[in-house]
Design a binder for these strands. Structure first.
Lengths: 250, 250
DNA sequence: GGACCTCCTTGACCCAGATCAAGCGCGAAC
DNA sequence: GTTCGCGCTTGATCTGGGTCAAGGAGGTCC
């Protein structure tokens, strides 16, 4: 797992065969606009655990996650940390018009990013409305997700927090694999217990205990530490404190 | 305080003299675009405590807060509530392209909004890049604020949470009154203890106790329940767990 | 004046989750 | 094989903030 993933380095240079072309910032672009983008783009790969950029660093690119998962993290002076975003394939990194990174960006799994040089990207934003329109849409979605997460952080119990996180990962995983949310869901957790704790505002011990409790109660099944099976998704949603009505896909 | 505020109903119909014209969605619009906006806009006033719109309701307008404060709130089935946004003058309400409201919007103080009919506003968004550009900028700012708040909710102690909220209100109040953040700041809290608790993920008892503690320790002074004096802003920032370096204005 | 709000404060007690600590499982390095 | 070390689990104990309960301050209405 720690040796370099060769496949992820020799990535497609061609937007036409890009796996995220339907959901990324460039999703609305016309062929000529894509061509323009190809001229300012380049790929970067990171191994799990590597830091993509530190908060406060000068940032001369923006980009999309092509494969793998990255996390946005904030850290207080005394070391307390809070994850404030989970970046999945097609998610956008960086902010046009801003010089420096506002958060630490860390590769949670092996990661491939499609980066655009910031200056020309900003210029294109002004010229081609398609880019800005799509970015607005994506930013509004992220804002909704952040607000959803504020409810989790502010008002949910530890058990509900874990169930919320699992249901989000399960739902997204199902949507990546192009299948609806069925009753039976199987996936691998892409996060360590510590990363889960940082996302949920808990300690890793509490995460571990609640995972054990959900397993004991039959809400989830665990093989090893990471392989999760969810026998009844609406049960999980119930545990998360959400309405159990919707297995609605995003 | 509960009787209708007549002044706030007879509001300006003229964008030229609008108090938020430099910061609202329309800030980038050209004179002809403003004229077009004037054609689809109307004002609405609300008394403190009134609900502007309920989550899930059909929403056929978007708009800006002109004066007063509104809050975005999420509620769980069992009644637990979390405030997920504090809307100040110039802040935008609603999401173009979405049919229904995602959150409860409540007037925290007496409130005046400048509303645009949604359909024609969406059309204008497509036609005039200035609107979409400004909205993107504002949405990115809100996303940053939401992420900042995730750190507060997930990792800060009750005392730090209160200090964080007070510093945010103090800073914004200073910026509204067009004065920098000085050492001595005075303002009226626009929130009840309960609203503060809903924002901070605490109970109102804890809010009250921590306010008393901060007063006892000389971090703040209180006259009545709402009138706050901050004798040393950097001290407050310290209590909030933030770097005490910056009295930087936004 | 008194009655009755609403908003807030304070005290006593309790519990969910943090903290501190020990140890397990498993893959990598030697 | 043995020895690391990392990620994780589990137990014992502590504590910050929740819960329950009583009452105060100040405003409005009669």
């Amino acid at each position: 797992m720690n040796k370099l993933n060769v496949e992820s380095i020799h990535v497609s240079q061609d937007c036409g065969s890009c796996p995220i072309k339907h959901r990324a910032v460039c999703a609305r672009c016309q062929p000529d606009e894509l061509e323009q983008l190809e001229g300012i783009k380049y790929y970067r790969s990171f191994e799990a655990g590597q830091t993509v950029i530190w908060s406060g660093d000068r940032m001369d690119f923006v980009g999309s996650v092509v494969s793998g998962i990255a996390s946005l993290t904030q850290t207080m002076e005394d070391g307390r940390t809070q994850m404030v975003g989970l970046l999945l394939p097609s998610d956008f990194v960086g902010r046009p018009g801003r010089m420096t990174a506002a958060y630490d960006v860390v590769a949670t799994t092996d990661l491939v990013m499609c980066c655009f040089r910031k200056k020309p990207f900003e210029q294109m934003m002004e010229d081609t409305p398609h880019l800005a329109q799509r970015l607005l849409e994506m930013t509004l979605d992220e804002l909704d997700a952040a607000r959803e997460w504020m409810l989790v952080l502010g008002r949910k119990t530890a058990r509900e927090k874990i169930a919320s996180l699992l249901s989000i990962i399960a739902r997204r995983d199902a949507s990546l694999n192009l299948q609806g949310v069925q009753d039976l869901l199987v996936f691998d957790l892409p996060l360590t217990r510590e990363a889960m704790a940082d996302y949920l505002g808990l300690t890793l011990e509490t995460v571990s205990r609640q995972m054990s409790a959900l397993k004991r109660d039959g809400v989830i099944k665990l093989e090893g530490k990471r392989h999760v099976t969810i026998p009844d998704f609406s049960r999980l949603l119930n545990e998360a404190g959400d309405d159990a009505d919707g297995g609605v896909m995003v």
